[in-house]
Simulated assay, not measured.
Amino acid sequence: MPAILNYLLHLSTAAALVLAFFVVYVRITPFDEVLLVRQGNGAAALSLGGTLIGFSATIASALVHTSDYYQFTGWALGAMLVQVLVFAVTTRLLRMSKDQIEANNCAFGGLLGAISLSIGLVNAGCIS
Rank of each mutant, 00 (worst) to 15 (best):
Q83L: 01
T66V: 10
N6H: 03
G42T: 15
V18R: 03
H10M: 11
L19D: 02
Q39P: 06
R95D: 05
N105S: 12
G125A: 13
T58F: 02
L35I: 09
M80N: 08
L112R: 07
F55H: 11
L117V: 14
V37R: 10
L52V: 11
H10P: 01
G109M: 08
V86M: 00
F72K: 04
R95P: 02
L9V: 12
F55L: 04
N41E: 09
G49P: 08
T51E: 06
M96N: 11
M1I: 11
N104R: 10
R38C: 04
A103L: 09
F21D: 01
R95K: 04
V122D: 07
N41F: 08
L9Y: 04
A44T: 06
A20E: 02
A3L: 15
V24W: 05
V89M: 13
P2W: 01
L35H: 10
G125C: 05
S118H: 03
N104E: 01
A124P: 10
G120L: 11
I59W: 00
Y25G: 00
E33P: 07
A43P: 04
A16H: 09
G54S: 13
G109H: 11
L5G: 06
H10W: 14
F55C: 03
A60P: 01
L85F: 15
N104S: 10
A15H: 01
S61G: 09
G40N: 09
F72L: 04
N104H: 08
N6V: 05
A76Y: 03
